Structures are given as structure tokens and as C-alpha cells.
Computed example of a mutant assay.
Amino acid sequence: MNEWLSIEKVEELAAQYEALGPLMGLLPPFIEAFLPFLPLVVFVIANASAFGFWYGFLLSWVGTVAGSYAVFLLIRKYGGNRFFSFLTKPVKVQKLIKWVERNGFGPLFILICFPFTPSALVNLVAGLSNMNKKNYLFALMLGKLVMILMIAYIGYDLRALLTQPIRTLVMFFLIFLLWLVGKWFERRLTKRVEEDFKSFSSLDPSNKKE
């Protein structure tokens, strides 16, 4: 992973992107939605470096939104199939599905905004829930807009990270701050899910002993 994050590697990717055209800027963020172990941050920075800040941001945003929504639609259509039943077995997933169904747009939007949120889990939970398709697309578009804009702004001028130490310090501070806020929200969300699930279980007559 470290070699992916080197400036030389990202600049090499940027040069390839520019040579192959806009389609190359769209495909990696799209594919990352299906293969979440790929480095989305690197693709976004490479796009911003190759195509310029705004155009690179647009390509990254369209690619990742399209990919994430495609995953959501696939989960929505085939998630109930017995072959994919393993997706819904974990207790954490079940709790998140019920919580998303009760709380909807707001929490998902905030989660999607943070670059360290496991987007694969968000797409999975939203797809398995009964959340309206248009509402999820809207949350996805807005959340990814914020996230991609932040990443593109931080990394569009890679060489400046070496020649402008103050900017570099600010960048790392922002990344660390985003990580802290994301972790805080994740812990708060987990706690809220647990509380809501216990409350819901206590009110559900089927869970009471006769």
C-alpha cells in the first residue's frame, strides 16, 4: 500500500490517465465500488493531477457514484437470494439494516462524506434495507461530492506537498481530523444502533416470553 501512496507512483498513474483520456478517469473509481480494497484516494488524486482539479473531481465523483449505486442496485435485486444469504447473517448487518430503515437519509449521508467509511458496508446495508432508491441515490451523490471534493483539494498539487511544508502539515491535520470525526461518529452510530435495537426488541411482542 505504501508504494501506491508514493508521489512518483501517483504521478505515473496521472500520466497514464491523461494519455488514455477521460474514460480512464472514470473506470478506476467505478471499479473500486466493486473491489473496495483498491485505493480510491489514489485514483482521485491521480485524476485531479492528470485532468485538473475540477475536471478530475468530476470524473472521480461520477465514477464512484455510478459504481456505488450499481452495487446498491445489485444488492437490492439479488441480496434476498439464498446464494447471498451469508451477507445478511452477521448480527451487526441485521442491526444496521433495521436502523437505516428507521433513520434513513441523514446518517447515511454523513457516513458517506467521510473517506475512511467502509463504503462497501454502506452500499450493502442500504441495498438490503427498504430505503427508497431515489433517496439513496441523493444521499450518495451529496455524500460522495463532499468526500471526493476534500480528497481532490488535498492532493491535486502533489509537488506542493514537498515544497510547501505548511500546506503539508495542514493536509495531514485535516486527514487526521477527518479520521477522528469519522471514528467518533462511527462509535456514536454503533452505540445508537445498539440502543435502538434493544428498545425495538423490548417492544416487539414476538420477543417476549409467554
Rank of each mutant, 00 (worst) to 15 (best):
Glu3Gln: 13
Trp4Pro: 00
Ile7Asn: 10
Glu8Ser: 14
Glu11Arg: 12
Leu13Asp: 10
Leu13Pro: 01
Ala15Lys: 11
Gln16Tyr: 01
Leu20Trp: 10
Leu20Tyr: 07
Leu26Ser: 06
Leu27Asn: 03
Leu27His: 07
Phe30Pro: 01
Phe30Asn: 01
Phe34Asn: 09
Phe37Cys: 01
Leu38Met: 14
Pro39Glu: 07
Val42Leu: 14
Val42Ala: 15
Phe43Met: 13
Phe43Asp: 06
Phe43Ile: 03
Val44Tyr: 06
Ala46Arg: 07
Ala48Leu: 02
Ala48Glu: 05
Ser49His: 03
Phe51Trp: 05
Phe53Asn: 04
Trp54Met: 13
Tyr55Asn: 09
Gly56Ser: 09
Leu58Lys: 01
Leu59Lys: 03
Trp61Asn: 01
Trp61Val: 02
Ala66Leu: 15
Gly67Ser: 08
Gly67Val: 07
Ala70Trp: 01
Val71Gln: 02
Phe72Arg: 02
Leu73Ile: 05
Arg76Glu: 04
Phe84Glu: 08
Phe84Gly: 02
Ser85Met: 09
Ser85Lys: 12
Leu87Ala: 10
Leu87Arg: 06
Thr88Tyr: 05
Thr88Leu: 10
Lys89Gln: 13
Pro90Cys: 02
Pro90Thr: 08
Pro90Lys: 06
Pro90Val: 01
Val91Phe: 05
Val91Gln: 12
Val93Thr: 12
Val93Gly: 00
Lys95Ala: 07
Leu96Cys: 02
Ile97Asp: 10
Ile97Gln: 09
Arg102Ala: 15
Phe105Cys: 04
Phe105Gly: 02
Leu108Phe: 05
Leu108Gln: 10
Phe109Asn: 00
Leu111Gly: 10
Ile112Ala: 10
Ile112Gly: 01
Phe114Ser: 06
Pro115Gly: 03
Phe116Asn: 07
Ala120Tyr: 14
Leu121Lys: 03
Val122Asn: 03
Asn123Cys: 11
Asn123Phe: 08
Leu124Met: 11
Val125His: 01
Gly127Pro: 07
Leu128Val: 09
Asn132Trp: 03
Lys134Trp: 14
Tyr136Glu: 03
Tyr136Lys: 00
Ala139Ser: 08
Leu140Phe: 07
Leu142Arg: 02
Gly143Val: 00
Leu149Met: 10
Met150Val: 08
Met150Glu: 06
Ile154Ala: 14
Ile154Asp: 01
Ile154Tyr: 11
Tyr156Phe: 13
Tyr156Glu: 07
Tyr156Thr: 04
Leu158Trp: 09
Arg159Met: 13
Ala160Gln: 13
Leu161Pro: 05
Leu161Phe: 12
Thr163Val: 13
Thr163Lys: 09
Met171Gly: 09
Phe172Met: 13
Phe172Asp: 10
Phe172Trp: 15
Phe173Lys: 06
Leu174Phe: 14
Ile175His: 00
Phe176Ala: 15
Leu177Thr: 14
Leu178Thr: 03
Phe185Met: 08
Phe185Lys: 01
Glu186Pro: 00
Glu186Ile: 00
Leu189Tyr: 04
Thr190Gln: 09
Val193Gly: 09
Val193Met: 11
Glu195Arg: 04
Ser199Leu: 11
Phe200Ser: 15
Leu203Phe: 04
Pro205Phe: 03
Asn207Arg: 09
